Amino acid sequence: MARWGRVPGRHADQYDWISAYLYDRGLQRLWRVTIFIATVLLAASTALMGFSPQGPGNRLTTVICFVAAGSAVAAALPFLSHWPTRRQSMAFSLTSSATIAAACLSYSNPYVGLVGCATFSVVGGFVAYFHTLREVNLNCGVAALCAAVLAGRVVAKTGDAYLTAAALAVVAALNVSLPFGIESLVRTLRVDLRSSGRDPLTGLHNRRSFHYSVYELMMRHHGSGAHLIITMIDLDNFKHLNDTQGHAAGDAALIGVSEALEKSCRRSAVIGRAGGEEFLVADVVRQPEPEVHAERLRQAIANLPVSVTASVGTASAPIDGDAATPNLGLIDELIRAADDAMYQAKRAGGNRSCHNGQL
């Protein structure tokens, strides 16, 4: 049975598939603007505290406060111009955690700083939505350390342990419930999307899920100088197999082909059933050799014990270009080009492969 995504060690990182999910629904721009505006507002609150008697108490802590505000805005700038890479997103979350810590610890009134630790939950929510549980725990750890230091200062200054405990309870509730609630929700959403994206017979991606997964693949390799290669596979005379041996034999052939494709492709490859007797394979490679790749898949199908062969078409293109992030349009273009190449192979008699080098 096909394994979803086929990329070991990536299941915990949500950035690529969330990016594809938002792109497909036209929501990336809304998220970019929202994240940038929220960051600017939080940075403004930090800067404004620089003028408050409860804020930083000397020149050094005032400078820290303003540097923290400026750093947060600078880290959010990629969201203003384009959908950031995973690395830029991680830099934004780490910078945000560091600037919140610096600002809260710089306030002369420790109670204000302690209450300000609730802001870590905003970063925690972002990390839980886009990244991994490890980053969520890291953000919570920084929040807990800052809150502990500031709680000690509050008790030392006021002697009011009850006030301190009440503030700690609010900070803890927000920094635990919000990030971990979002993390649990996103994991559940991904499982549901995966289940709905499988072809029930072969276990491969259906066409919509194939697009999502290829977009994830492109996101992971964007900026590496790699090429995306897409292969369209159509079984020859499949209708004749169904008519002469029955649909059970046809289903067995489809399952056999899906297993042969999995064994013949790299683990990074995305394999889907496009419909009927058509299959799609996508992979990202540094040195594209589409003819070799296509011939390997064709031969793997021809070697099956069932009497079936395949016409194979491929197309490839660099995934970087001028765009800041990959796009689903390139996937559609390559599928059309691979489909044209596949029909060239079929018109030439089938059981052969062709490459469309136009892109």
Rank of each mutant, 00 (worst) to 15 (best):
V40R: 01
A169Y: 14
S89G: 14
L150T: 02
N139D: 02
H293L: 11
A161E: 14
Y215S: 12
S184F: 15
A337C: 15
A253F: 02
C265H: 00
I271G: 00
T119P: 05
R25S: 07
V285Q: 03
G349H: 12
W31P: 00
Q54H: 09
G357P: 15
R187V: 14
Q344I: 11
R86P: 06
P8F: 06
Y215L: 13
D199F: 09
S316F: 11
F51R: 12
Q344F: 00
S316V: 09
A147E: 07
G124M: 02
I35Y: 01
S45Y: 10
L328M: 14
H131Q: 15
F36K: 06
G116H: 10
A68L: 05
R267E: 04
P53I: 04
Q344D: 13
E259Y: 09
P318I: 08
A324M: 10
D236P: 06
W31E: 06
Q245R: 14
G357R: 11
S184Q: 15
L22P: 05
V171N: 06
L114Y: 06
F120T: 03
A249C: 10
T314H: 08
I319N: 00
N351Y: 07
S108T: 15
E216D: 15
A128E: 03
V123D: 03
P8E: 02
R190K: 15
K346M: 08
A345M: 11
R207S: 13
A12K: 14
H240Q: 09
R187M: 13
Y21E: 08
G57L: 07
N327G: 14
F120S: 02
A98Q: 10
S81R: 12
V123W: 00
Y107F: 15
E277G: 01
I230L: 14
A300L: 04
